[in-house]
Structure formats: C-alpha cells, structure tokens
Design a protein around this nucleic acid. Structure first.
Lengths: 191, 191, 191, 191
DNA sequence: TATGAATGAGAGTTCATTCAT
DNA sequence: GATGAATGAACTCTCATTCAT
C-alpha cells in the first residue's frame, strides 16, 4: 500500500519521463530541460529533484523505453514460430514507437555513453529472437551467416526510418513501406 | 584572369572547408567554429567573411564533399560493368572517406535542412549507377524492385558504418567487413 | 513537567544542532541544509520546522557553542590564578573544539550578522578573564595596554589556527604548536 | 608598438580586474561574475573571453595584487634599516589596500587552491624582509625564535583587520590603530 | 579582405525554502 | 511535529555571430 505522496512522486517522475519522450520524439534530443519542465507542467528544478542530471534523465528514459520494447518483443516473439511473422511483429512494434525510435537511431551519437549502452542491450534481445527463428528455418533460407542476415534486416529497416523525410515525410514510414520491406527481405533470403 | 586578392580569398575559403572536414571527421558536427578557425590558422571572423553562417559553411562543405564523391563515383562506375565490381568500388570509395561519411550519416539530423538535401542528392547519383547495373544483370538476380535492392545494400553498409563502435571500434569498419558485406549481398540477390 | 512531544521536539532540535556542528567542522559553512538533514536522520523540512531559516540555525548553533565555551572558560578560569595557567587552559579549551573553531574564525564573514555578533560575545568573556589575570600580574609584565596584550595573544593563536594548512596540515595545530605559543607570549610580555 | 586593438583588449582586461578588485573589496568573494561584468560595463560573456573561468579570474586578480604588493614591499623595505620603520612601512602598505586585503584573509578558505597558493607566496616575501631586520637587530630584542616574532606581528595585524567591524566599523582600522600596533609590538619585543 | 574582441541569449545545475500531507 | 516533493531564482559557462579596426 503506497502513501499518497509516494504516488504523487511516482506520478511526477512518470510525467517527466513521458513528456521527455514526447518532446524528444518531436524535437530530437537537443530539446532542453527547461522545455521539458514547462511542457510537463513542473518547475525546472523538479527535473533535477528526480534525476541528478540531464544524462541520467536520458538514461532512465531510454532504459524505460528499452525495457518496454524488450518485454513486448519477448511476449510477441514467443507466439510467432516463423520468420515472416517475426518480421511483421518487429515492424508493428517499431511502428508503435516510430518517432522516438527514429530519434534514437538518428541521434545515437549525441547520447551519453550509458544511454547508448542501454540501447545496445535492446538490440541484442531482438537479435536473440531472430537468431532462433533463422536457425529453425535454416533449411529454406540462403547459406549466409545468421548475424549478417540479421544485420541486413536491421540495416534495411533503419535505412527507411533514418530517411523517413525522403521516403515518407508526412505519414509513418513503416505504415507505408513495412510490407514491402518484409516481402523484399523474405524474397532475398529464401533459397 | 583572377586578381591576386581573389586567389587569396579562394585559398582561404578552401583552407576553411578542408579544415572543417578534418575537424568534423574527428570530433563530429558539434565542433565549434572557433576550433575550426584556430585549426585552419585564420581568425574566427574570417569564417563569417566567407560563409554567412555556420549553416552555410556546412552546406558548402557537404556540397563540396558531395560533388567530389559524385564525380568519383561517376568516373569509377563507368569502367565497371558488373554488380560485384560496382559494390567493391562503392565500398572503396566510402572507405577513403569513412570517418567523415560516418559523421554525416550519424549526425544527419543535426544538419541544417539544406545540408541534408545536398547529401540526399549524392545518394541519387549512387542510385543511378546501381540501377543501371542491376538492370543489366536482372536475369541473374532475384525479382525484387530495384530501388529496394539498392536500399538493402545502402542499409547494410550504413548499418555497419553507424555501428562502427560495436563492430570495429579501432580500425576502419569497411576494411574489416567490406568483403563480407559484398559477399553477403551478392549471395542474397542471386537467384 | 514536559509532555512526550515536547521532549521529542527538543531531542530533534538538539540532534540537528549537533549534526550541524559536526558537518560544519568537517566541510565548512558552505555545507547544505540537505546534507545536515540527511546526516541528522531527519527530513529536510524538519530543519525549517525548528529554525525559521538557515541563518537562524547558524545563530542558534553558534549561540549554543558560545554558551558552552563561555561556561567552560568561566569554570576553568576560576581555578587558575596566573597568566601561564590561563593561557594553557585557553588553548586546551580551543584544542577540544579546534576544527569547529577554525571554521568559525575562517569563514566568519560568510555568517549572518547575528551569528557574527554572537561569536563576538564569546570573545568578551575570554577577554574578561584575561584582563583580570593581567591586572593581577601587572607588576611583572610589560607596560602595555591590557586590551592590546589580549589582542596580541588572540592574534597569535588565531594566526596559527587560520593557517593550519601551512603549519600543521594533518595534525591539530594547537597540539603541535600550543606550548611554543604560550612560551613565546610569556617571554614577550615579561618585563 | 601596440596596435589599437591590443590596447583595447588590455584595457578591457584591466577594467575587469580592477572592477573585480573593487567589487570583491566591497562585497567579498561571493560577488557574482554577472555583477562584475555589469559594473565593469562589459557583457557577461566578455569576462569569459578574458578568463577561462571564475577561478582563473580570481587567480589572476590575486596574482596581480600579490605582484604589486610584493614589489612595493621590496622597494620600500630596501630603504628601511630598522624594525620600527619596517613595521610602519608594512602597515602603510596594507592600509593602502585594506579593504581588499581584509577580504583576502577573511575569505581565504573560499578561494580556489591556486589563488590561496599565490597569496601564500606574497606572505613569504614579507617574511623574508622581516627576518633580515630581526636578525640585524637581534641584540636589542628578546630571545624568541624569529618566525614566532614574525607570526606574532602578522597575527596582531590580521586580528585587527579581521575584526575591523568591532574595532573600527566606519574608518579604516589601520589608520586608527596602526601606530598603537607598532608601539605595542616594539615594546613587547624589546629586551 | 581579414581580424578578433565583444556580445548576450540560453544552457544545465544548485539549494534554501514552502506547504500539502 | 515531522515529512519530503516541489519550487524558482540565481549561478557559472558556451558559442555563433557582429563590427570597428
């Protein structure tokens, strides 16, 4: 049983994280703490009462995002037993977080070391599930080292995400090109 | 016939662009104008005597880089008549500019609109040559829309470049993984 | 007869004062209220439930310290009937509070007006006892106005305390130089 | 031959240092860079164009002050061949910089390491001249280790300076008490 | 043309203090 | 009485840009 104040604190922290998520999604990671505070409806100092520094806020945000993504992947991947399903699931998932995910991969180099590491860990969960699926279906797919298959897929997806402004400036890229990406990839890897 | 002054001016401009290229390659696009000026051996103000703003410097730099890259591609692609050669040539070219190219694709979102557009134009030159080669060899490669083939290749290469710190932190990525990338891609696209 | 609540309140207040004394001794008067609260095992707000402001806490702390020091001086000085004994007693007393006393004289200018005044009052108690002793032994000491004798002594002692980092960085200064200071002073004042 | 701009730059730097000297003299070392900038009639950023940080400004200021004081001491001490003259000269010198000197000794513990060290060096110049004078007149003064004689003098003077608010709140302390201090000290050290 | 000193808005961060619980 | 989350003004420092020289 939590006290009212604990709930209030958690609520504020959550509000900051959620607002940061929105602001970063829209403006990128160069958005300032003052903007986040204002948008979250808290004072500027409150951010630093919850996070010791901007870097820590970033880490927590990406950690939270990564955890959510990771567990979604886990849950969804369990029920899929073939590559096609897995690819679609993967894209569905990314589509749900498209804006933020794009910022993450586009501005990765600006992020503090910790945050970058956190994001790398997410990627390895995805890799794990793909590896399993690729191995299971290895008889029907081309004889290419599995990591390279995975990286080809990731590369293709990220390429479309990173170049959203060229491919699909106004609507989500994955909505528009998702099925083409899976089709293409499946066609390429099949024997 | 150019006056001495005009020559001097062009020389200074070139020096700034070249230094900016070096500095951005090493430190990324968050390097300051003061650092570039110092390294170029000119005064801080001189930068703004040649470029109306930092954004313009970036545009010109990337324009120059794009032009150089574009004409190299043109020249080299002319002599190559099959996909394999073209892929290798492409990677050789990128390898020669790896550091800067990585910064360009990694920090693209920080760049001003104009600079981003300029870079996109480079890509289309590359695409043009790939299209020709793919069409020529269409009988032996899988039945996949050519743009998607091209994007798969670009995605794969960029994925390795962007994740250089994971794949090959100390040595150039393309030196280490270049041949694996071409092999894999060729294997995937062949019928 | 005090209620349980009143006792509790007094206990908390005492705890804060004592902790502040320790913290200020170690870190100086730039230590924050948050640090004091944490170390005292009370909430940050509790400090302000007992003291209307940081300045008031400082005043009370120094008041308490001054009162304690003053009564100790009184008690000890009673039994001493010559200057030599008095000097030694004075140094013994300061030695017991050396760390805090140094902070007090070193960072006096940071303290609020009230706190500074409080500290001055302590000094006058010391002065009173010295005056008595000097008068009693006036026949054997040099013909110098008593206040100046007293200030010479205080100056000498404070000089060593304030420059502890030069004279004795690792061990208490008074332990190391106390006897030299009394010897010197006695030698100087004797006819 | 200096260019106009070099002169302008030196002038600004000097203006900042001088203003800082004035402001610190009046308000103590907790005065902010913004206040100094405003008072000096330059923009806030200008301070950091001349000094890489607040600490560096402090160091340069104290260095300058120390150098000036040191060379004045040297020059004046040369011509004085007895202790009495030396004491008077010393006090005259301090009197000319009384306000700043008081802040320096009163808030020494707040200063960055470097600045503290710089100040210590000044002291040793003073000590050097006193040592010489004490040695020369050793036959007529009490048999007390010279360093202790020096420290007694410094202690006495600093005690009056540090407690200016008690001894002489409105007028310079040394003007009011200077001669009493020299008289007393001379009386005490004579055999 | 080239210079570089000066600018000032804006960044992240700190901390004594408040007040609903 | 005690709590501690929230506050916001104030701090030092950065840097693209300007303009008198």
């Amino acid at each position: 049983m939590k006290t009212k104040r604990q709930l209030q604190k958690e609520h504020t922290r959550k509000k900051i994280i959620e607002t940061a998520y929105q602001i970063y999604s829209e403006q990128g990671f160069s958005a300032t703490t003052a903007v986040i505070a204002k948008e979250a409806g808290v004072s500027h100092g409150t951010i630093f009462a919850h996070f010791s520094s901007l870097d820590e806020l970033l880490c927590c945000l990406i950690q939270d995002f990564g955890d959510a993504l990771g567990s979604e992947i886990h849950r969804l991947a369990e029920t899929k037993d073939n590559i096609e399903e897995l690819l679609k699931t993967h894209l569905d998932l990314l589509a749900r977080h498209e804006k933020f995910y794009i910022r993450l991969i586009a501005e990765r180099s600006l992020l503090p070391e910790d945050a970058r590491l956190t994001f790398s860990n997410i990627q390895s969960i995805v890799a794990f599930h793909f590896n399993k699926a690729f191995e299971r279906e290895s008889s029907t797919i081309k004889d290419v080292p599995i990591p390279l298959l995975f990286n080809t897929w990731m590369g293709l997806v990220h390429y479309y995400l990173l170049n959203k402004d060229l491919f699909s400036p106004d609507t989500p890229v994955l909505e528009r090109y998702g099925s083409k990406l899976t089709e293409t990839f499946l066609e390429l890897i099949k024997k």
